[in-house]
Design a protein around this nucleic acid. Structure first.
Lengths: 152, 152
DNA sequence: TATTGTTATACTCTATAACTATA
DNA sequence: TATAGTTATAGAGTATAACAATA
């Protein structure tokens, strides 16, 4: 997940699949960031929206753990999403310390647009591969991800 | 190429290969950054060393174009490499405006260490795949990269 | 007048720690 | 005393533009 600004330029190199992966991942992120920017959100915000959409009613603390950012950082990120009217902070009944996060109607609409953008991004980025090859690639990447503990 | 700081946390999601690619690329960069940090350089510096090693005697202007960064930014990056004794700025005979970049002996040794780190990174990151599968993955990624104009 | 490199300034992103309000 | 969230401060990293030296 990158910021709304552009990701870092890729490093030249051809040593192997792991390096290629880093380069391609960087480029894929950059392209997808361009797409969601048209919707009005950054890549990071797209990720946050998605998580909140799938996990409504979680606390900021939980979001911080999930994304590996500091709680004080979450405040800034959530502030921005709230300012844009994409999410809402609701009090948790019985514990007024915590703030539960949920999408607004605008947030849900935006999230649907992000999904559409992702599908178009996928089609454009993997245009060089046939459907069968895309499936093969996905399978290989999923195994690598699982082995690295990235699976969800 | 990512910065020496950690790459961004990946965004949760499973939509397809393009998204997986972004996530895995980010993780691969993070792991490789950890490895080169032990050598004393950032991910970005590793990329710069490699380019300078392969293209000795190029100007800062050329480096800026290659990496897509501003010339004023190159000054800072090259300053740091020079301060660490990894590269040298030499005057170009006949044009005292330009500064030609070349590795020092320390820079060449460091670059070799980076190569070793990259091979170990590759082995660790793709441990889930057989050699044949790694070859298949590399082939698919290379085709995607070529189609995206990332080939070099 | 154009080009290479540099410096100066400001802005963004982030980390750290102090703080508040609740529990 | 511990926890969730917030605020304040400072540090990187970066972009922009002005600048000096040379062509």
């Amino acid at each position: 997940m990158a910021t709304s600004a552009d990701p870092e330029p890729a490093d030249p190199g051809t040593e192997g699949a792991a390096f290629l992966l880093t380069q391609l991942g960087s480029h894929a992120a950059a392209r997808f960031a361009e797409r969601v920017a048209e919707i009005g959100v950054s890549l990071r915000q797209a990720g946050l929206l998605r998580w909140i959409g799938r996990n409504p009613g979680r606390s900021q603390r939980e979001l911080a753990e999930q994304f590996g950012v500091r709680p004080s950082r979450v405040v800034v990120l959530v502030d921005e999403l709230e300012r844009q009217g994409l999410i809402r902070r609701a009090p948790r009944p019985g514990d007024r310390r915590t703030r539960l996060l949920e999408l607004t109607e605008h947030g849900r609409r935006t999230l649907r647009s992000v999904g559409t953008a992702l599908r178009r991004h996928e089609d454009e980025f993997l245009a060089a591969l046939t459907p069968a090859e895309r499936t093969a690639l996905t399978g290989l990447l999923e195994r690598v991800a699982a082995h690295q503990g990235i699976g969800r």
